[in-house]
Design a protein around this nucleic acid. Structure first.
Length: 828
RNA sequence: GGGCGAGUGGCGGAACGGCAGACGCGCCGGCCUUAGGAGCCGGUGUCGCAAGACGUGCGAGUUCGAAUCUCGCCUCGCCCACCA
């Protein structure tokens, strides 16, 4: 801090500037702005009560980019809202008797205030709160559109059910590997209930296509793996039992079908009962019942024994025409492929383990070309040079060819053909909870599930509800809510009590931001056409799959219904790292390691906290919280303050000659102009830590310039003004204050981003490292256009190089223009 | 078990085929001061008085040159987890 001039006191001006920006609507994004639109979005938070340091970390990065892009001439929209439906509000209601709406509203009010203290350029006029009926009305409207388009349907699905409380539990309400009810500790069971689904699997293939999307590779990979597309063949194995359909299986290895020596059905497979023979019925029934009870509990374990029972009947291998036994085993998953598989123990590890345990035949039908068939272990390798053995007419054929040939042979006999299957399942959107958007459906005894007419939306959540500790959704016992009439026939009907998964709310909130106050439709098509798609989306990587994939699905589905005219919601995506507690664990209230930014801001100011968070490391990395070092960032800002105050130019002892001063001024100007693009590139690449270090270097250069008496010169003023402009996105308050004090027009945030003067950034002398055998021995200072042979001569003439050459003539000299010289000796 | 990512000073990190340790914290020394937990100046990878040698988890390799590329191993983190 400067000895003269006024002390840096962020508390004296930060709030004032925030009020002014707010009053002036500085960050309001207008639809008719002639500049190019730029939609920058950061994931909205769940209103848990307080903003912690992680929220600051997540929001400051995109705020910097938003501010820079605005200075670069774009019409930036940067909105914020609240993901305000969900379980914690309901838990608060149950535990403390506060109504979820009340609890949520007070949390939002608090967090909104805290958000404002960060000095982000959020356009609060566009705020979206998903638990507001003005929002969920349109969530319901969208459900109806999905229903009409056949993309929302009802089906039986297993749910976690507490037999004591008689209630469906959410996934997070089932605790531990013993799977106990969070409330009463009873062991939870699976129970089939009618649930609502969205048909996301219709879009599996399109969701695999990331063409033109600037997304992190790990996220694309995770979604790709989640969708889990597998190519192979479907093959029908006729069952001997009369009246039973052939058993269809999916396989990625049709080339091994000659080695299929038995079949295994999932316990849930629909043909199990019909295929079970009388003498096996007791065993099979017991096994199926046990598997059903254990679904997911035991199946989670990879290492467990391959259990199963023989069903008593046989099928025919369509290639060998052999009778092969049919088993039931819980390692076969009901939801994947056809829920049945042909077991090829010689070429699949799981089938091999099953065959060994149950003493079933193992037949090798593929082997490495020219090698004997391996014994004692499954041969699963799938490379180019394998051939079929013991496979009838296909014996000797390369495995890669056999895949197609066998599939064709089966297709000719109507016993199969090429097939594709996915791991992706349809999206279960039903939640048996209160605090969510009610599914807008009524059940008519005559017409079944009927959507609520659009002009009767929203289906409001009743407010007069009691939250009993049994955790049963109060909607299920709210007579007035349940009472409905059929929209088709007017008969007495019952209202659906399921609410929607909160991921439904977040699958379209980015559309609502475009026209948040429209009360005639979910969005204004013109506004959406103007702003969408989101140019840059930021958020935590924990949403890699669900939220991001659901949003992509929504956009594609709505496009196909004619509501949208683009394919993807988010062009570019960046993930911030997670700030952990000082104990290296996730911040959570129960651990007591949550860092509240309020203490830090009151002590250092918002700018310092913002800058510190961006300085501690790469933004996408995160890491454990450690406030050590915040002083350094504060000192940096205080130094910027000191060199920028108008009276800073008064000091300095002009000492050098005019020529020396001109050279120093030129060096300062070069440093200034070099920094402009470096900082811009770093900001754009989310490398805020290096951007800040470069601004620190410029500030240090300005301090030195003042010490040598440059403070009164134009180069000094240019350096300071440029530094303030570069720093403005990261430290918006103090740069605004200094900008004003230096006599410039309000606001620094409406200035154009500075342009680097190329004539200043090109260097005329360079320092070249000189290596001997790759080891640094000397440095040469030469003019930038020195010819190569001259550089070589100078390098060889260096006494230090000579010493290391030790009389030897160089073998060769490698020059990387402008980078270095390496002299290679013949020795090695 | 599979996939992805990461290992660099006392610490956060920079460099990402070409000067390892930018920038900052901390620490050491000095200046200023009635005082300093303020500010300013200098130093700070390790060993060594020095010249110099060594140095980016470990081990190989490619290259004139490797923290960076390749292969194998170790450790940590995240995701998926019997997906036929």
């Amino acid at each position: 801090m400067t000895a003269r001039g006024e002390r840096f006191d962020p508390g004296s001006f930060e709030q004032g500037w925030r009020d002014r920006w707010e009053a002036d609507g500085l960050y309001r994004a207008s639809d008719d702005d002639p500049r190019d639109k730029h939609y920058l979005l950061t994931m909205y938070p769940y209103p848990s009560g307080d903003l912690h340091i992680g929220h600051w970390y997540a929001a400051t990065g995109p705020d910097i980019v938003a501010r820079m892009r605005r200075m670069k001439g774009l019409n930036v929209m940067f909105p914020m809202g609240f993901d305000s439906f969900g379980l914690p509000a309901e838990n608060a209601a149950i535990d403390r008797g506060i109504h979820p709406a009340k609890w949520t509203a007070s949390n939002i009010a608090n967090m909104r205030t805290q958000f404002r203290s960060m000095g982000c350029m959020f356009d609060w006029e566009r705020e979206v709160v998903v638990s507001d009926p003005a929002y969920y009305r349109w969530t319901q409207w969208l459900f109806v559109q999905f229903f009409k388009a056949g993309l929302a349907y009802r089906a039986m699905a297993p749910v976690d059910w507490c037999p004591k409380d008689q209630v469906v539990l959410a996934r997070e309400q089932v605790l531990g590997t013993e799977r106990r009810c969070w409330r009463c500790g009873t062991t939870v069971i699976k129970r089939d209930l009618e649930q609502w689904f969205f048909r996301i699997t219709n879009y599996a293939d399109e969701l695999l296509d990331f063409t033109g999307m600037d997304w992190p590779e790990p996220i694309r990979l995770m979604q790709t793996n989640w969708i889990g597309r597998s190519e192979g063949a479907e093959i029908a194995f006729p069952a001997e039992t009369p009246g039973v359909e052939p058993i269809r299986v999916f396989t990625t290895r049709p080339d091994t079908v000659f080695g299929a020596t038995f079949m295994v059905l999932a316990p849930e497979h629909p043909s199990v009962a019909a295929l079970t023979t009388t003498d096996r019925k007791a065993d099979v029934d017991a096994y199926v019942a046990a598997a059903r009870r254990e679904t997911e509990i035991e199946r989670l374990s990879t290492e467990r024994e391959k259990t199963g029972v023989f069903i008593g009947s046989y099928a025919t291998n369509p290639m060998t025409n052999e009778r092969i036994p049919i088993w039931v085993g819980d390692y076969v998953l009901p939801g994947y492929g056809t829920g049945a598989l042909m077991a090829v123990p010689a070429h699949d590890e799981r089938d091999y383990a099953f065959a060994k345990k149950h003493d079933l035949p193992i037949r090798y039908v593929v082997q490495p070309a020219g090698n004997p068939a391996p014994e004692g272990e499954p041969f699963v390798a799938h490379t180019a040079d394998e051939v079929l053995v013991d496979s009838g007419e296909f014996t000797g054929m390369p495995a890669s060819e056999a895949i197609g040939a066998i599939a064709r042979s089966l297709a000719e006999r109507d016993l199969g053909g090429p097939a594709v299957t996915y791991k992706l399942r349809d999206w279960l959107v039903s939640r048996q909870r209160y605090w969510g958007a009610p599914v807008p459906i009524v059940y008519c005894p005559e017409h079944g599930a009927v959507p609520v007419p659009e002009d009767q939306l929203p289906v409001l959540l009743p407010e007069d509800v009691e939250f009993a500790p049994t955790a049963v959704s109060p909607l299920q016992s709210h007579e007035e809510f349940l009472k409905a009439t059929c929209p088709i026939c007017g008969a007495d009907a019952r209202r659906e009590t399921d609410t929607m998964d909160t991921f439904v709310d977040s699958s379209w909130y980015f559309l609502r931001y475009c026209s948040p106050h429209d009360d005639q439709r979910p969005w204004d098509p013109e506004a959406v056409a103007h702003w969408m798609p989101v140019d840059l989306y930021t958020g935590g990587a924990e949403h890699a799959v669900l939220h991001l994939m659901y949003s992509r699905f929504f956009v594609k589905a709505l496009r196909d219904m004619g509501h949208l005219a683009f394919d993807e919601p988010f062009i570019a995506l960046r993930n911030q790292g997670q700030i952990l507690g000082a104990d290296h664990h996730r911040m959570s209230k129960s651990r007591g390691n949550v860092v509240n930014p309020d203490d830090l801001t009151s002590r250092y100011g918002s700018d310092t906290v913002r800058l510190f968070l961006m300085f501690i490391g790469p933004w996408d990395q995160g890491g454990p919280w450690n406030p050590t070092g915040i002083e350094g960032v504060y000192r940096f800002l205080a130094r910027v303050w000191g060199i920028s105050l108008p009276d800073a130019s008064a000091g300095g002892d002009a000492a050098g000659s005019a020529a020396e001063d001109a050279e120093l001024a030129r060096a300062l100007r070069r440093a200034t102009h070099m920094t402009i693009d470096e900082v811009a590139d770093d900001y754009a690449g989310f490398r805020f830590n290096t951007a800040i270090s470069k601004m620190m270097e410029l500030a240090n250069a300005i301090v030195r310039a003042r010490e040598v008496g440059l403070a009164g010169q134009p180069a000094y003023a240019e350096a300071v003004d440029t530094l303030l402009l570069l720093l403005a996105p990261a430290a918006p308050h103090m740069t605004e204050e200094l900008w004003q004090r230096r006599g410039h027009d309000y606001s620094v945030h409406q200035q154009a981003w500075p342009v680097a003067d190329a004539s200043l950034t090109t260097v005329d002398t360079i320092e070249l490292p000189v290596q001997v055998d790759g080891k640094l021995r000397d440095r040469l200072v030469v003019t930038a256009n020195t010819p190569a042979d001259e550089i070589e001569r100078l390098a060889l003439a260096s006494p230090r190089v000579q010493a290391h050459l030790d009389g030897r003539a160089p073998d060769r000299v490698i020059q990387v223009p402008g980078k270095l010289v390496n002299i290679v000796t013949p020795g090695d």
